[in-house]
């Protein structure tokens, strides 16, 4: 697994994530200023971004932050906002066959919507290499923590990202990634179900449950439309799949 070289794979990951990094800077700055407004020191803001490393949950937590700190409520809400990671991890763990056990655990620590999406897109074409994944995920971590820290030090609002359309950059990127998953009308049915369920759930259910509801609804349609006879990888492919699944599951046997 040395062609192309490890550093080339890392650079390719950094290059792929560049548009996301450009969008993450103003959003990280904004989060830092909001945290500072709630009394976070720059160190505390950096610590949150470095260890929680989950944008949506961090915005929700800062919004709920008051004196005295409602600790349990914030921790439980953080868990609920991030419950989608369970689904994402269940899918991604199938592709961690080339990762060492500590590498796999670090990969999961660094898993964001964005790094996960790039990894899932990569495995459509070739097996996932640790160097590529960490090129994506470490750049994201470095930019997010730096922007949060800078925002907390600046301590005043730098303006609304929506004014420049940066808030839409993440949606645009996800649309670009989704196009790579297109396999025909059946994908359309899955996407339509997921989109409509999630949008309705967003209006009806508080918090971030809409992501789980939409994801599960889409998966249910995929299962309903699944036809056993169409599933026919030749024996060699099946064996290779089982092999990679076996090594992938070793990551989880800590």
């Amino acid at each position: 697994m040395n062609s192309p070289s490890r550093s080339a794979a890392f650079r390719s990951g950094v290059f792929d994530i560049l548009p996301v990094l450009a969008a993450a800077v103003p959003i990280g700055l904004l989060w830092g200023t909001l945290a500072a407004g709630k009394g976070f020191t720059p160190f505390e803001a950096w610590l949150t971004s470095a260890t929680v490393f989950a944008g949506a949950a961090q915005f929700v937590a800062v919004d709920m932050w008051r004196e005295p700190v409602p600790m349990l409520l914030i921790v439980v809400t953080t868990f609920i906002v991030n419950v989608r990671h369970l689904l994402m991890g269940a899918s991604l763990q199938r592709h961690l066959g080339n990762f060492s056990r500590p590498g796999g655990l670090l990969a999961m620590f660094l898993m964001t919507d964005e790094s996960w999406a790039f990894a899932e897109r990569k495995v459509l074409a070739e097996p996932l290499r640790p160097a590529y994944y960490f090129g994506v995920a470490l750049s994201m971590w470095l930019v997010w923590t730096s922007a949060s820290l800078a925002g907390a030090i600046a301590g005043r609002s730098l303006g609304d990202p929506a004014a420049y359309g940066f808030d839409f950059a993440f949606s645009a990127m996800f649309i670009a990634i989704l196009a790579g998953f297109w396999k025909g009308p059946r994908t359309g049915a899955v996407l339509a179900t997921s989109a409509v369920s999630a949008a309705l759930a967003k209006l009806a259910v508080p918090g971030a449950w809409y992501i789980v509801i939409g994801g599960v609804a889409g998966v249910i349609v995929a299962v309903i439309l699944h036809r056993e006879e169409e599933e026919g990888p030749v024996a060699g492919e099946r064996a290779a799949e089982m092999q990679s699944e076996k090594s992938g599951s070793n990551v989880g046997s800590a």
């Binding site: 994402m88 899932e120 989704l178 899955v190 999630a198 809409y210 994801g215 889409g218």
Partner: peptide
Amino acid sequence: ALPAAVLMAVIA
């Protein structure tokens, strides 16, 4: 189907 379904739900 999970990756596409979850991605779609995030931006829906």
